[in-house]
């Protein structure tokens, strides 16, 4: 199956054949194998695991975005921002998390609160991914 995995900052796969992709989505994490039923989903912060044809596993952290599985078995994973797991810094993530939490607690209105909640969620997932 042809995987296109791109983010605003980088392209990871461009129509490259892979064995399997595991993605975290708002309707639950799921794995995509060739001939998966066509579907649309929205990415939630977490780790996307790509199993390449030679058996190599590639773990990439994504913040948000979309997943499209088409009827020709091509898969598009488009993320707002994505980074390989080894590039994540646990200490920095921890710092970002506490900053986001304090922002969440001091948020004045609904909008700021929602924004801070998203930041907390992303930071939590980064910490989780970096310490795994």
């Amino acid at each position: 199956m042809a995987l296109t995995f791109a983010a605003g900052n980088k392209v990871f796969y461009d129509k490259q054949a892979v064995k399997q992709v595991d993605v975290p989505s708002f309707s639950g994490a799921f794995g995509i194998l060739p001939k998966h039923v066509p579907t649309l989903a929205v990415l939630r912060p977490g780790v996307v695991t790509v199993l390449e044809n030679d058996g190599k596993q590639n773990k990439i952290f994504v913040s948000s975005g979309t997943i499209t599985v088409n009827d020709d078995s091509s898969v598009q994973v488009l993320a707002e921002e994505a980074h390989p797991l080894e590039n994540l810094d646990r200490a920095a993530a921890q710092e970002a998390l506490s900053k986001a939490q304090s922002e969440f607690n001091s948020a004045a209105n609904e909008k700021a609160k929602a924004e801070a909640a998203i930041a907390v969620e992303v930071a939590e997932e980064i910490v989780k991914a970096a310490s795994a």
């Binding site: 296109t4 791109a6 392209v11 461009d14 091509s74 598009q76 488009l78």
Partner: peptide
């Protein structure tokens, strides 16, 4: 870097 991204978003 943005080309596959843009193409991917219109494929659907």
């Amino acid at each position: 870097a943005a080309r596959p991204y843009g193409e991917g978003s219109v494929i659907f």
